[in-house]
Amino acid sequence: MWARYALRLISLCLGLACWASPAWSQTRFIIIASTTSTEQSGLFAHLLPLFEKASGIKARVVALGTGQALDLARRGDADVVFVHDPDAEERFVTEGHGVKRLQVMYNDFVLVGPQSDPARARGKDVLEALRRIAAARLPFVSRGDRSGTHAAELRYWGLAGIDLAREKGTWYRDTGSGMGPALNTAVSMNAYILADRGTWLSFRNRGELGILVEGDTRLFNQYGVILVNSARHPHVKQTEGQAFIDWLVSPAGQQAIAAYKVGGKQLFFPNAAK
């Protein structure tokens, strides 16, 4: 009786597994671990159909912070990583998890803050702006999630000569969240925040906030792409993953990136090595 029930249960599981997984029928797809900035800015929704048309390969994007995306790939759960933290990317390749890092495109970070700008941070110099915010002890929201943006922000604090460990007070809000949630927090607190331009431009809930610092060459934000090493992770779809990377750095892919605009503004600038 109970054995028969167990048998029925197993067949139910198998039935459900097949039913719930149309995924198994399509064999050619890759998993790209990428960042919230590329996903939420709508870039992937623009690029992937073009790539699929060119190659017949579907790409599935899991959007996380750069640090998490690299960790995901370290466990072998992605075929390609497409992120924006050059130092961390190089480390990933050196450790043997990635085959080779190729640069793909860039955009820039912007310092966003209240239009009234009580810290008088507005200008062309991001380091000076951070010094003023810290000096005025005005609320600053940090991603705090090991993302590329977080890594860049920490780099700027260092360059500005501010020892966060010492200066950190209630004004510095470590939110441990993605770009979008962090922006939502900043809006509700009328705080300063470092954001990538792509997410900022496609972000809808801006409240009183606006761009205060942009165009500083140090705000350059480079994106790179890496094929996960199949010597380390044997099930990685090497051919398909490589096809995506080849397409991304090819003239076709680069043009597709340049063609993506939000509100008439180009978000990403292709700069793959020729």
Partner: peptide
């Protein structure tokens, strides 16, 4: 699920995503 568009994106993860995009 990874909130993959068209594969594993469900209602709750879409809500979370739209919230992060600030489209409240």
């Amino acid at each position: 699920g990874g909130n993959i568009d068209g594969v594993t994106r469900v209602m709750t993860t879409t809500i979370a995503l739209e919230t992060s995009k600030g489209d409240l």
